[in-house]
């Protein structure tokens, strides 16, 4: 593992007309294998922040550096080819194709034909979705689609993995598998997870960054964040105690 800084945003701001969705965010992932959770209520700017990181939105102000290279304003495909992979909030899959074909398409971006096939089977088995390999993904449940998209993201072997609400729509068993998988991923990549599911966050996270109204509200160890009264009251409500 290297100690090279993976990601840093400085003064990152994204405005839509009069609405400031992301406001002066200074955020960093300092070393390979770091796992960070982003927390915050709906509309806090988490997904917009992700979209800025992947070039789906061009930030109004501020800089983003990934592995020392400035990437703000770059096209999505260029950023992805540098090594950022994202599982979007609503899974973006090729609905007419099977799970196997979806993952193979992603694996082919990084590997030659035979290795791509091996990689595809590896990813399907790692994500516990081998049984779905022949199924048309458009017909599957949200949770299953999440796992397939995750397998696609991982098949391309990114350096930084962004997961936008990966546990949504998953059964308990699927969620446990996901938590295990995310931890596995941190052996080779850094991970940022946006999630609302507190039980899941407790399962995987060490450090948590809390977003509120487009700004970073708090950043600390997961246990301290859980105990932080203002975070609890404003963002987590009673679910934090319950979890």
């Amino acid at each position: 593992m290297s100690d090279q800084e993976i990601l840093r945003t400085t003064g990152l701001t994204m405005r839509f007309g009069g609405v400031t969705a992301v406001n002066n965010v200074n955020f960093s992932i300092d070393h390979e294998g770091e796992l960070r959770c982003l927390l915050g209520p709906n509309g806090a700017g988490k997904s917009t922040f992700f979209k800025c990181l992947t070039g789906q939105l061009v930030p109004t102000e501020g800089t983003i550096t990934f592995m020392g290279e400035p990437i703000a304003g770059m096209d999505t495909h260029e950023i992805v080819n540098l090594g950022i992979g994202i599982k979007t909030q609503v899974p973006n899959l090729f609905n007419g194709l099977s799970a196997y074909d979806n993952v193979r398409l992603a694996a082919k971006r990084k590997h030659l034909k035979r290795q791509a096939i091996e990689k595809t089977f590896d990813m399907l088995s790692n994500c516990g979705i081998e049984n779905l390999k022949g199924s048309e993904v458009g017909l599957l449940s949200h949770g299953q689609r999440q796992l397939i998209e995750l397998a696609m993201v991982l098949a391309a072997e990114p350096t930084l993995v962004l997961l936008d609400e990966p546990a949504a729509g998953m059964t308990g068993e699927e969620r446990d598998r996901l938590a295990f998988l995310v931890k596995e991923v941190t052996k080779t990549a850094s991970v940022i997870v946006v999630e609302h599911d507190m039980a899941f966050i407790k399962q995987i996270a060490k450090n948590v960054t809390v977003f509120h109204r487009g700004e970073i509200f708090a950043e600390d160890d997961v246990k301290k964040i859980m105990k932080n009264k203002s975070v609890q009251e404003i963002y987590l409500g009673k679910s934090a105690d319950a979890a």
């Binding site: 992947t54 096209d75 992805v80 899959l93 609905n95 194709l97 971006r109 696609m152």
Partner: peptide, 10 residues
């Protein structure tokens, strides 16, 4: 089929 995923595949 899916413009977003295509660009996210690079």
């Amino acid at each position: 089929e899916n413009e977003v995923r295509s660009s996210l595949l690079g």
